[in-house]
Computed example of a mutant assay.
Amino acid sequence: MTDAPTPRRPTLVFWRLLALVYDVFPVVALWMLASLAFTLGYTIAGHDPHQNIAAFSPLQWVLWAVCWLIGGLYAVLSWHRGGQTLGMRPWRLRVVDASGALASWRALWIRYAVGAVSLALAGLGFWWAWIDRDRLTWHDRASGTRMERMPPRTKA
């Protein structure tokens, strides 16, 4: 007699938000390092460090892009390595493709890009999961990935 695999329940928006809150901390720390590097570079180039705060210069647009890329590298590398970011581990969440395997680089970058747009729109793509029949977000649908909640570990 073979045991059929237990179907995974859809991940609730609540669990996704908890993981996102946890993931804010390492990402903001990386952003602070990037900002420090930009500020030091700006100062070394002979500019007053207060000017980079007072005027919204083209260099600050570069910093925004670098911070977006840093967030993407954090998420995509984590998802590709084991399906989880640091914030997803305590809640036993994992990103997989439709077959249940780890997703491709392309799918993960699409997931990150659509998720970033979703967050920029006040999280509308996340809230969409409340009305979606499969409880999927915009970035789940766009990338062909799913977030699943793994069962708790059993003690051996």
Rank of each mutant, 00 (worst) to 15 (best):
A37C: 02
A156V: 13
Y112R: 04
D97A: 00
L93M: 10
A34C: 13
V24A: 14
A29D: 10
W91S: 02
S78N: 10
T154Y: 01
L12M: 00
D3F: 12
P7Q: 09
E148Q: 14
E148S: 03
P5V: 07
S35W: 07
A101L: 13
R94I: 14
M32D: 00
T2V: 13
W79R: 12
L33K: 04
A113V: 15
A75F: 15
A54C: 02
R81Y: 11
A107S: 15
I44W: 10
W91F: 06
V62H: 02
Y22H: 00
A54V: 14
F126P: 06
L102Q: 14
V24D: 00
Y74V: 00
R146A: 04
L40Q: 14
L93F: 08
W91T: 02
W105R: 12
L77I: 14
V21G: 01
Q84Y: 09
L108M: 15
R149N: 06
Q84T: 07
T43D: 12
P151M: 01
Y42V: 09
R149L: 12
L108T: 10
Y42G: 09
A37Y: 00
W68G: 08
T6M: 11
M1K: 10
V21W: 03
D3W: 05
Y112E: 07
L86F: 14
G115S: 14
W68Q: 01
F25S: 04
T154N: 00
S35Y: 07
S99F: 05
R153M: 05
G125S: 04
L86E: 01
G83W: 13
G125T: 07
I70E: 11
P151H: 03
P49C: 05
I131Q: 15
R81F: 13
Y22V: 11
R149C: 05
L119N: 07
M150N: 08
M1F: 12
L40T: 09
H47M: 09
G83N: 08
I131R: 11
G125W: 06
W15T: 05
R16K: 05
A29G: 15
L108C: 11
L73I: 13
L33F: 03
V27P: 12
G72V: 04
V13D: 01
Y112Q: 10
L121C: 15
P58I: 10
V28M: 04
A113C: 04
V114F: 02
G144S: 03
D134G: 00
G125M: 12
I44N: 03
L33R: 06
Q84F: 04
R106E: 12
V96R: 12
M147F: 08
Y74I: 01
L73P: 07
P152D: 03
V62I: 15
W15C: 01
G72M: 06
A29W: 08
A129I: 03
L18V: 14
L77G: 08
A107C: 13
N52S: 08
L20P: 08
V27W: 04
W68N: 02
W105A: 06
A19F: 13
A129F: 03
A98G: 09
V117M: 10
P7R: 05
L17W: 07
L30G: 07
S57W: 09
L73E: 02
A75K: 06
P7E: 05
G83H: 08
G72F: 13
